[in-house]
C-alpha cells in the first residue's frame, strides 16, 4: 500500500494553456487526480469544461471538477459528467457542491436559498439521479442487429422514474453508460452531516492533525476513500490545515498522518502543481510511500470496485428460455 496523491486547483484563469501546463505536470508526476474548484459568481471558467479541455491532452490523471447541485439540473450534470468520462476515457470524477449563498441564487434567478439540511438532501437526490442515469443504459445496450434493424436493445435501457421533493426525472440518459460505469463521486466533508448523508465514493476531510485524522477515519464507513486536505504554502487560514516548510518536512507530515490515521491519501491544495511535483513527489517516491498507479481508469486507481449496474439483470435473474 502506498499513499494516494491528489491536487486541488483553484485557479481563475481563462487561458487554456495555463490549465494544460498544470494538469500535465500532475499527469507526468503520476498523481492520482486533480480537482477543479468552482462556484457560481466566481471569477473563473466552468470547471467541468476545464476538465474536458485538458482531457485529450493528458493520459493518466483523474479529472474531478466541482459541480453544484443547487439551482442546476441533475439531468445536465449527469450527461456532462458522463461525457467527461467518455472524452477522458474513464478518468472522470465529480466533486459535489451545494450553494448556500443568496448571491449565487440571484444569478440563477432562484431567490430563496433553502436551509443547509434541505440543500444537502437535495444534493443527495441529485447524486441519486445522476447515478441512476449513468446506469440507465446497460453496457451492452448497443447491439447493431442488422437482421432486425435494431441499433439498441431497448430492454437494456431503463427509465429511472425518480420523484423527490425537489425534482422528478424520467430518463433514460441521452448518453450511453460511461466507460467507468459510475464516474467517481467526491465531496468535501467537514462533518457527519455530509459524510453520513451523501452517496459519495471519496470524501475530502479537513483534520487538524494526525490524531484528528484518525478520529475522522474511525467515523466514516470503511468502503469510502478518505483524503485529508492540506493547504500547501498557504498563509490565509481556511478550513484545512496549512503547511509551510520544505518538501522533506511535508513528506514527514504525510508519512506520519498516513501511518497514524489510515487515510487513503492526501489532497494538496496548491497554488501551482510544480510546488509539489518538484520536491515532494520525488521525496515520497524515494521513501517508497508513493508509486504512480499503472491503472487507466480513476476508479481502478483509487481501488474502487467495478461499478455493477443497478438495472442490469443478474445472471440468476435472467429467466431460462
Amino acid at each position: 500500500m502506498t499513499v494516494q496523491l491528489a491536487v486541488a486547483l483553484n485557479g481563475d484563469s481563462f487561458d487554456a494553456g495555463h490549465w494544460i501546463r498544470q494538469v500535465r505536470l500532475a499527469d507526468e508526476a503520476g498523481l492520482d487526480f486533480v480537482t477543479f474548484e468552482d462556484r457560481f459568481g466566481r471569477h473563473g471558467p466552468d470547471a467541468v469544461q476545464v476538465a474536458a479541455r485538458v482531457a485529450p491532452l493528458t493520459r493518466h490523471v483523474g479529472l474531478v471538477p466541482v459541480a453544484t447541485t443547487t439551482h442546476t439540473e441533475p439531468f445536465h450534470l449527469s450527461t456532462a459528467l458522463a461525457t467527461l468520462d467518455w472524452v477522458s476515457r474513464g478518468r472522470a470524477g465529480w466533486q459535489v457542491r451545494i450553494s448556500t449563498d443568496p448571491a449565487e441564487a440571484a444569478l440563477l434567478g432562484r431567490r430563496r436559498p433553502l436551509p443547509v439540511e434541505d440543500l444537502l438532501a437535495e444534493a443527495g437526490d441529485a447524486i441519486e439521479v445522476v447515478r441512476r442515469l449513468w446506469d440507465s443504459w446497460e453496457d451492452d445496450a448497443i447491439i447493431k442487429d442488422v437482421a432486425t434493424g435494431r441499433y439498441i436493445d431497448r430492454d437494456r435501457l431503463h427509465y429511472i422514474d425518480f420523484a423527490g421533493a425537489h425534482f422528478s426525472v424520467k430518463g433514460p440518459s441521452i448518453v450511453p453508460r460511461p466507460p467507468q460505469g459510475q464516474p467517481v463521486v467526491a465531496a468535501l466533508a467537514h462533518g457527519p452531516q455530509v459524510w453520513d448523508a451523501l452517496d459519495a465514493d471519496v470524501f475530502f476531510v479537513t483534520p487538524a492533525d494526525a490524531d484528528d485524522a484518525a478520529r475522522i477515519v474511525g467515523r466514516i464507513v470503511p468502503e469510502k476513500k478518505i483524503f485529508a486536505d492540506l493547504t500547501v504554502g498557504g498563509h490565509v487560514p481556511g478550513d484545512a490545515a496549512t503547511f509551510n516548510g520544505t518538501p522533506g518536512q511535508l513528506a514527514d507530515l504525510i508519512q506520519s498522518w498516513w501511518t497514524v490515521s489510515g487515510v487513503d491519501g492526501f489532497r494538496l491544495r496548491v497554488g501551482d502543481v510544480a510546488d509539489i511535483t518538484e520536491g515532494l513527489v520525488p521525496e515520497l517516491r524515494r521513501r517508497g510511500l508513493f508509486q504512480p498507479s499503472a491503472h487507466t481508469t480513476l476508479r481502478e486507481r483509487l481501488g474502487l470496485p467495478v461499478a455493477v449496474n443497478r438495472y442490469a439483470a443478474r445472471p440468476e435473474e435472467i429467466p431460462v428460455a
Binding site: 467541468v48 469544461q49 474536458a52 479541455r53 482531457a55 485529450p56 445536465h76 450527461t79 456532462a80 458522463a82 461525457t83 467527461l84 467518455w86 472524452v87 443504459w137 448497443i142 441499433y151 439498441i152 435501457l157 440518459s173 441521452i174 448518453v175 450511453p176
Partner: peptide, 12 residues
Amino acid sequence: VGRPDTITVLTA
C-alpha cells in the same frame, strides 16, 4: 441512439 453532452464534447 445516444450522444454526448454538447458543451462538454465541444470543449474537449
